[in-house]
Simulated scan of single mutants.
Amino acid sequence: MSPASSHHSPTRTLVSATGPAGNIGDALIRREALAWAVGTSDELIVYVGDAPDVWLHQLGVPSGTRVLRSKRSVGRWLWLIATAPRHPVLMFESGEIPLDRGNVLRELVFLAETVLVRLKGGIVVRPPRGIRAPTQPAGALHALAARWSQFALWRDAESAALAKGTRVVPDIGFGAGIRAGLPATERRELIVSLRGARPFPSDDWCEAIRAFARAEGLGIRTVVQVREDEDRARDLADALGGIFEPWGDTAPLVQEERLRERYDAARLVVSDRMHVLVLAALSGAVPLELVPSPTRKITAAFETIGVRDVTADTERLTAAQMAERLQWQIARVDEITARIAAAATELAAVETEIRDTIREARA
């Protein structure tokens, strides 16, 4: 039952949920944010931009939702915000927010949307986000809009500081559901999934992966969670003597479930893709970013949930040192599992707080 069911006046929730269908992590966090919004109003409106039909299935958009497609519908989106009944809800996208110089106009529009909703007595929610490439004045506009929002959530302390925010919570992906997976003694795989845009790993890196897998009696499997990484996964499997599992023509939701089943059976997952590691950890696999000169993105997000040293910079490590780092990481499985459970609990509490705030605003 919606919060407005006991009132005669209608209510409206608007959710922005654009993204690439070929990135399962992006779909996952958009879906989790949409789930926070479902049932909060009589009318649900979702803007998906230029996304294909399959994106709607990935997000689990409920039947009866008004879906706005293509950039030509931006004017309609703004009109629906401006003409919304009292106490509307506006839910922005979760994930990484680029604030480079090309995004000034976009941030100005988002600020206007925020002010409109607040003037109508509505609720503005910015789900857990991280800031990328901050510049001015885009950063200042974003920070101002965040201050006007009842919920401006940040997935890492660095992003919160840039926006002068205070609310740091786990990345919303950690709320995607904890899975039991196989018992630790039955997990027989080491999974690797790396960005195709990075340089191919060094010979020492490959030797470290092979040596660790041999020592632990693990098979190596390379998987694809982002379509553009498929060629890299194939080449890695060749270099590591592992099994390559392509995405191919598999439907995205089927591919997502297949990946989660693979993580259910993995003892360790090595990746430089943040949501590969998030999904792996939700399945009870130990996550590790093992690359040269890593960014702060993964480190910061995992530090938010109390998991430190999830990233290892291989720039100056020998093959033997990398293998030792892999060995050290798998010994942390109980610590990491406990932190993942706490993060999921915290996100559930945040959702409850948002829903309670919406009900109170309309009471």
Rank of each mutant, 00 (worst) to 15 (best):
Q327E: 15
L317S: 05
Q255L: 06
V254M: 13
W328H: 12
Y263C: 06
T295V: 09
T295E: 14
A323P: 00
T299D: 14
A323I: 00
A301R: 10
R308F: 15
A323F: 00
G284E: 02
L259E: 08
L259D: 09
R273L: 02
A320K: 09
T299Q: 15
Q321V: 01
R267K: 11
R262Q: 11
Q327S: 15
T311D: 09
V286Y: 12
A281E: 05
L268N: 09
M274A: 05
A281Y: 01
Q327G: 14
L259R: 02
R260L: 00
D272T: 01
T314H: 04
V310G: 09
R262F: 11
L277K: 01
Q255K: 12
M274G: 05
S293R: 11
L259A: 03
V307W: 01
A320D: 14
G306A: 11
T318M: 03
V254A: 15
V291T: 15
D309T: 03
L290F: 10
V286F: 10
A323Q: 15
T304G: 06
L279W: 14
D264N: 13
A319F: 04
R262L: 13
T318C: 02
E303G: 08
V310Q: 10
I305G: 07
S283W: 01
L279T: 10
F302H: 10
A312R: 14
V276S: 08
A266I: 00
S271W: 07
V269D: 13
L288M: 14
T304C: 04
E257C: 04
A281Q: 05
S283L: 03
P287I: 02
R258G: 07
A266M: 04
G284W: 00
R325G: 13
R260D: 06
R260Y: 00
L279K: 07
E261T: 06
P292Y: 03
V310F: 02
T299V: 08
Q321R: 12
L326M: 11
E315G: 11
G306R: 11
P287C: 01
E303C: 03
A265N: 11
T311A: 08
L317Y: 03
E315K: 15
F302G: 02
V254W: 09
Y263K: 07
A266D: 08
D272H: 08
